[in-house]
């Protein structure tokens, strides 16, 4: 019996093993390699051997206007993208939940479709949509005499990126929220209706509280993902105009692979990691307290 149990648990580990190996080699190992690197000056393109410089890379980052500007751009993106994405996902999920089951499949698929498009394709498409001279959006807007500099105006560019992000990622959040909604037993709503609760009250006193764990999961994942934003800005604006949409990941990427400063780029990656971790911890705290 004991043997059997051992075998059983062993087989579990065996199943995880392939993934764990890859995870270890391609994620955990580079992670700590990067941490080590961040204390070195290592310029790939030079013949100069790596040299230990302590915290120099970190202090350079924290005093660099480019780093701070990229961090600020990232924050702006997160602050706009997360509430809007999750909010619209919630609205759509609640709405889809009310239509008959058969039609639900179509709607769900329709909203989920953009999620399956790769970012390079989606980015290219939206770059065309946003084109101020020949783009789709301005073609329609020109009918009412408008011409919007979607991605060429310093103030507007990031908002346009956010808009595209909502379209692109909202479906993913929506599907999870919808699944959460469908787990809420119907009789709660029936009971509330009998008690005379209107739709608004039913939403705020039944749906929202019962959806909280799912909602918080979606928010946390969204924030983590948003801090790592790169594909959209890279494809649509390349960080422009005037670096207004150059987010942290892009700056790290450029530092590492255009300027070949591996140590400095690693240090910035770890700073980004710290920021994400702090936010995640805060959220998990909230999650735990409410439960």
């Amino acid at each position: 019996m004991n043997n059997r149990k051992l075998l059983y648990s062993l087989s579990g580990y065996l199943f995880v093993l392939p993934y764990l190996t890859l995870f270890g080699i391609f994620l955990v190992l580079p992670l700590f390699y990067g941490l080590g690197l961040s204390f070195f000056r290592w310029e790939l393109a030079s013949l100069v051997p790596p040299k230990f410089v302590g915290l120099h890379n970190y202090s350079e980052a924290l005093t660099s206007p480019y780093f701070l500007k990229a961090l600020w751009a990232t924050f702006r993106f997160v602050v706009m993208a997360v509430p809007l994405t999750v909010g619209s996902a919630l609205v759509v999920a609640v709405w889809i939940n009310t239509v008959p089951l058969k039609r639900q499949y179509y709607y769900r698929a329709a909203y989920f479709l953009p999620v399956m498009i790769s970012i390079s394709v989606a980015g290219l498409l939206w770059r065309w949509f946003y084109n101020s001279e020949f783009g789709l959006f301005n073609a329609y807007l020109s009918l009412i005499g408008l011409k919007v500099p979607w991605i060429t105006d310093v103030r507007l560019a990031m908002k346009s990126i956010v808009l595209m992000t909502i379209w692109w990622t909202m479906g993913g959040a929506m599907v999870i929220l919808l699944a959460g909604l469908q787990q809420i037993p119907d009789h709660y709503y029936e009971a509330a209706s009998i008690d005379g609760a209107n739709a608004r009250q039913r939403f705020f006193y039944i749906t929202l509280p019962l959806l909280r764990p799912v909602l918080l999961f979606v928010i946390v994942m969204n924030i983590i993902g948003s801090f790592q934003v790169f594909g959209q800005t890279w494809m649509i604006t390349r960080g422009g105009p005037e670096l207004s949409t150059r987010v942290l990941v892009q700056y790290i990427y450029e530092t590492a692979f255009t300027h070949y400063r591996m140590g400095y780029a690693s240090a910035m990656s770890w700073l980004l990691f710290l920021v994400i971790m702090i936010f995640s911890i805060i959220q998990f705290r909230i999650l735990r307290e409410k439960q």
């Binding site: 084109n131 001279e133 060429t152």
Partner: peptide, 13 residues
């Protein structure tokens, strides 16, 4: 004014 990404396209058109 350089508000346009694909200025090149303008020439093509």
């Amino acid at each position: 004014p350089p508000e346009n990404f694909d200025a090149w396209l303008g020439f093509r058109q």
